[in-house]
């Protein structure tokens, strides 16, 4: 094995911040929690291995799931298994639970963390579209204090985040909005241990009945987000606009599917094709609307 990179194991946030004070963009200190992404890089066979690391395993401040002030707050070290088992998540965030259940398999779900999924910034990260449609905020901290970053602003480019080199992800705040519905679907390469070909999440709120002509009520606050169709997880805002303020009729679903196919620009790669991703994203959205409306 290559020589292990030097690793610090702080036991308090203050200590962690002190370690990270030495982290710069050119010479970063890589945090490790579950390690499911970092450990793949450790051999140095895929790009440069981390040169210096900070171990988050003693930072209990990054753990726990609480419901507070109209939001579910998940510590950055919350594992996918903890999300799946959490009563709060199952009650308020079923779409996030559904996403967590599709990641890797049991071993990965036991180790991997929500904070890691966010920090890794993969365009295929399976929880990330859910966080986008639920208007989640990422609370990050460092020696200079804490700040909150809306997820929509968090992934700034391919594999790049708004996190400063000396900051840690502390927790994720997801507002619990009454009447909000959310759905999740992943199309992967197989039934487990699969990286997404397309992953999408949709959220909406049912508006007052007066807005519609038919029996179905109009949707408002529509959010649609996708992974694996761009260089980062994205919101499909043009398609959202098609769905916003109207009822989920067949005509609406058709228009939304067409809009989504026009809006995204996926690529051919080793896992799938641009044509497939575009068509399946549109069809998966069409199915979600169809299921929700019950026609």
């Amino acid at each position: 094995m290559p020589v292990e990179p030097p690793i610090a194991t702080p036991t308090s946030l203050a200590d962690a911040y002190a370690v990270l004070a030495g982290s710069t963009a050119d010479d970063p200190i890589t945090p490790i929690a579950g390690g499911t992404d970092v450990m793949v890089r450790i051999t140095g066979e895929i790009g440069a291995p981390p040169a210096r690391m900070v171990d988050l395993s003693r930072l209990d401040a990054l753990r726990g799931i609480t419901v507070d002030g109209g939001a579910v707050i998940l510590g950055a070290r919350t594992t996918y298994t903890e999300i799946r088992r959490s009563d709060a998540c199952r009650e308020h965030l079923p779409a996030l639970v559904a996403a967590a259940a599709t990641i890797g398999a049991a071993q990965i779900q036991n180790r991997g963390t929500l904070g890691g999924n966010i920090a890794n910034a993969s365009p295929a990260g399976d929880t990330l579209p859910v966080l986008l449609v639920l208007d989640a905020e990422v609370i990050v901290g460092g020696a200079r204090g804490e700040r909150s970053i809306p997820v929509a602003d968090f992934w700034v480019a391919y594999r790049r985040t708004a996190l400063a080199p000396d900051e840690l992800i502390l927790r994720i705040r997801i507002p619990v909005a009454g009447g909000r519905e959310a759905r999740f679907r992943k199309i992967g390469t197989r039934r487990a241990q699969a990286i997404s070909k397309v992953v999408l999440a949709l959220a909406w709120r049912e508006g007052p009945g007066a807005a519609t002509a038919g029996p179905a009520r109009a949707w408002t606050d529509v959010r649609l987000a996708l992974g694996s169709v761009a260089d980062r997880p994205i919101r499909a805002r043009a398609t959202e606009a098609v769905l916003e303020g109207v009822a989920p009729t067949p005509a609406t679903a058709n228009a939304a599917a067409e809009a989504l196919a026009a809006e995204i620009h996926p690529i051919d790669d080793v896992r799938s094709t641009a044509d497939y991703r575009r068509a399946v994203a549109a069809r998966a959205l069409h199915r979600m609307i169809r299921d929700a409306a019950g026609w």
């Binding site: 895929i46 790669d269 080793v270 094709t273």
Partner: peptide, 28 residues
Amino acid sequence: ITEGTDPRPDARTDPQPMRGPRDPDEPR
């Protein structure tokens, strides 16, 4: 699919023989 289409501009100048795509798990 008649050929691989993973964009990998550095493939031919790969300094380390056998190294895989720089980001093996991601569509870009």
